[in-house]
Design a protein around this nucleic acid. Structure first.
Lengths: 155, 155
DNA sequence: GTGCGTGCAAAGACTTTGCACGTAC
DNA sequence: GTACGTGCAAAGTCTTTGCACGCAC
């Protein structure tokens, strides 16, 4: 199995990533006195392979492909670390398990949910930032982030 | 205790409600061959008193005030009915229980979350509809709804 | 009178945690 | 060598469900 610790499969046409994600994660961990283990590296790598939009159990399954052994607990613990590091974002859903999305270095967008098929797509919505900031400014708040979910069905 | 079945405490300056919410609910139930029970009436009334933004356990507690006896199960079952009827909307949150919001007759808006205090406010964002519709149109989808959460902290 | 609704407790789904062992630094 | 991390299984949280009884229509 490949050693994910030094790979960087994250490539987006839209914007230039100056630093591999794994380096970001490693630095964040080190700054908190935490360790960059093979499990954590492998999990981040798998998230990138999944195109950055996934559920915890699907991630676990993918991580285990090829015989890599990880526990559910480690996956959940790593997801929380990645969330805290601002690399991914947890997206809670109705009557379903949470989804997670890669967000680091991407412009904040929306989740488009096809209510017929359950299919989920990530959409860029740059103008949301202005809307959000205006709402916060009016109340003397500093925006920390936002999340938009759009539900739709085929015509 | 007051009989909620015939009261209508829902009043919004912003828009005119032509029909009491309880009447909407009652009609929806009847159309589905279901019954308008005191429990259901009381729960809807309490939601209105809570200004239409609440969590399931807070609702249960409020409903029980004054000695009214209801089970948790009935509250959850009624919430699902109200959601299906388009009167309220379930809003799943991170690492927390879901929140619910009164939406019937209101323009679709956003939830503003103060990440320091956990306080939650409902905000009108009419321009979201256009954004949403444009995204759906581009993909040949019919919009069913949307949901925006904004996270902010005091300056 | 019949079918839908209710309460209770138990089950469920997803996620988190305690503990003993293992390993990155 | 010393935290910190891991796996396992058990516990937690919120929510849903099965069943017997009760009530709205």
């Amino acid at each position: 199995m490949p050693d994910a610790r030094f790979s960087d499969t994250f490539e987006e046409g839209e914007l230039e990533i100056v630093e591999p994600l794994c380096a970001v994660f490693r630095r964040t961990l080190r700054d908190a006195g935490q360790k960059y283990t093979p499990e954590r590296a492998r999990i981040l790598d798998t998230i990138i392979e999944l195109d950055g939009l996934f559920e915890a159990d699907a991630l676990l399954e993918s991580v285990r492909e090829g015989g890599f052994r990880v526990s559910k607990a480690t996956v959940y613990r790593t997801l929380k670390l990645l969330d805290d590091a601002g690399i991914i974002e947890r997206i809670p859903f109705d009557r379903e398990q949470s989804h997670y999305q890669l967000v680091y270095g991407r412009s904040p967008g929306a989740i488009l949910v096809n209510v017929d098929t359950g299919e989920i797509e990530s959409v860029d919505v740059p103008e949301l930032v202005a809307i959000r900031d205006a709402i916060c400014a009016k109340r003397g708040l500093v925006p920390e982030g936002h999340r938009l979910q759009i539900f739709a069905r085929p015509k």
